[in-house]
Design a protein around this nucleic acid. Structure first.
Lengths: 202, 202
DNA sequence: AGTATTTGACTGAATATTCAGTCAGTATGA
DNA sequence: TCATACTGACTGAATATTCAGTCAAATACT
């Protein structure tokens, strides 16, 4: 706790500011000067901590990615209903949730043209899906024989649904309530009772 | 092939070039000079045909939209299976389909921070969903009472699913075959009605 | 202890770069 | 000759990047 200005702390503040800017203006609207202002730091310091705009962007995206993973990890609750609630809560009026969703979508969009980013994203998504598939396996026993492959497929579909609907929501094509209701409905049907994975359709 | 009054042809070439650039580099990587080069035309001509970058972008978006709508309209076939086939074909190794999907996703991503774009997108999406809901209504009679509201919801979910999975595919998190299989599976479950019996797994 | 020296986070004005948009001029067909 | 289609060098504003210099804390020396 020395008084000396702490390099790490500033770096962290910069990345946090960049996340906020990213959520508000997108990758294309991300200005170094804005980030500096938002972080309460000079523009020069950005270059002290990061090689250039791309470097800062990469760090920012990595941070969002990590935050996503962490947030999903802490989400608790047993059973299929809790699982669905967690997923539905990825869409919410909470500004923090919205910012996070916007940033996440920016990463997704950028990853189409950035293979390094795509690799990170692959890992995070795999993690997220694994967590859901695990949840499904634990609850499946009650209604159907556990089937890992089916659970994986359902998890993949579920996360894609979350992303697809949350994009509709972020672009104002669906209200928060509509998006949540549709997502819940879709998830219930996907995870739903009909002897789950026992029907391998392919 | 008259030599001079080529205005329309050049305009078309420019838009086509813009679509290609959009699919390759995203909105954020879209440079007027690049579009000119790609179209084999001077940068000045872009401004002869379009008011500014936004105007060209709007025309490009409209073109992608029209192409999408046209493609979807021509896709014929009755019944739920044909409907599902059409949706699954939004994911394909055909380079044209891939470019189109990439452009579509860029538009989606940009629309989060651009309300004008969002308005366009809202209209196109509504169109797409209506078409699907119509299809569902026509086939629903056989297994369930037609219910417009339910059909609308299913259509919204279906298109979100297409977008969500196709993003996974564009970022290399799913192969073409995986994405198509998952999408088909999800749609069957979604449309299948919980009157599950009618689920032909093809 | 006190004082000199070094370190490194940090600033912001100066400079470089990028890119949408312009314009003066050329070529072509009617 | 007139209008239209077109060119590409150029401009300027917005942005990214650099760098000489400041200052507080850490360290070394007496």
């Amino acid at each position: 706790m020395t008084r000396r200005p702490d390099s790490d702390e500033a770096r962290t503040r910069i990345v946090a500011a960049a996340v906020r800017c990213l959520a508000r203006h997108g990758v294309r609207g991300l200005r170094m000067a804005d980030i500096g202002r938002e972080a309460g730091v000079s523009s020069g310091l950005l270059y002290y901590h990061f090689a250039n705009r791309d470097g800062l962007l990469a760090a920012t995206l990595a941070h969002v990615n990590d935050t996503a993973a962490a947030g999903r990890a802490r989400a608790a609750g047993d059973g299929r209903d809790a699982l669905i609630d967690n997923l539905v809560d990825e869409i919410s009026d909470d500004p923090e949730v919205r910012d996070h969703a916007a940033a996440w979508h920016e990463i997704n969009a950028s990853a189409v043209f950035d293979s390094a980013l795509a690799a990170h994203l692959r890992a995070t998504t795999a993690d997220w899906q694994r967590r859901i598939a695990d949840g499904l396996m634990q609850t499946a026993g009650k209604t159907a024989p556990p089937n890992r492959q089916a659970a994986d497929a359902q998890a993949a579909i579920a996360t894609a649904l979350v992303d697809g609907l949350s994009q509709r929501w972020l672009t104002g094509r669906l209200s928060t309530d509509e998006a949540r209701a549709l997502l819940r409905r879709a998830l219930i049907r996907q995870f739903g009772g009909d002897a789950a994975g026992s029907t391998p359709c392919n």
